[in-house]
């Protein structure tokens, strides 16, 4: 089984070009906001495409996305409960 956190770290750093080291990204890290990953809503679309490619999980509903993309941990929880 994939290490979900490791895969997400790679997505954030390579696809979204975040200037962070993997160790800085933990389950508690916020998705939005300067104190977190600092992503914006356009970045989320890129992330959704990456999650579909890596995990085969489709996130195509705005209300679901609003609940999933809060912290790295909430993203991991959604992925692992839908795999």
């Amino acid at each position: 089984m994939k290490d979900t956190l490791a895969v997400l770290r790679t997505l954030f750093i390579t696809k979204l070009k975040l200037k962070m080291s993997p160790g800085d990204i933990t389950e508690d890290t916020q998705i939005f906001g300067a104190d977190g990953l600092g992503l914006d809503s356009i970045d989320i679309l890129e992330l959704i495409v990456g999650i579909k490619k890596e995990f085969g999980i489709d996130i195509s509903d705005r209300k679901v996305a609003e609940k999933v993309f809060i912290t790295v941990g909430s993203v991991i929880q959604y992925i692992e409960s839908n795999t």
């Binding site: 809503s41 959704i48 195509s60 509903d61 705005r62 996305a65």
Partner: peptide, 11 residues
């Protein structure tokens, strides 16, 4: 409002 990828048919 919402991005097209996340837009429901209802919206």
């Amino acid at each position: 409002d919402g991005f097209l990828m996340l837009m429901s048919e209802e919206d």
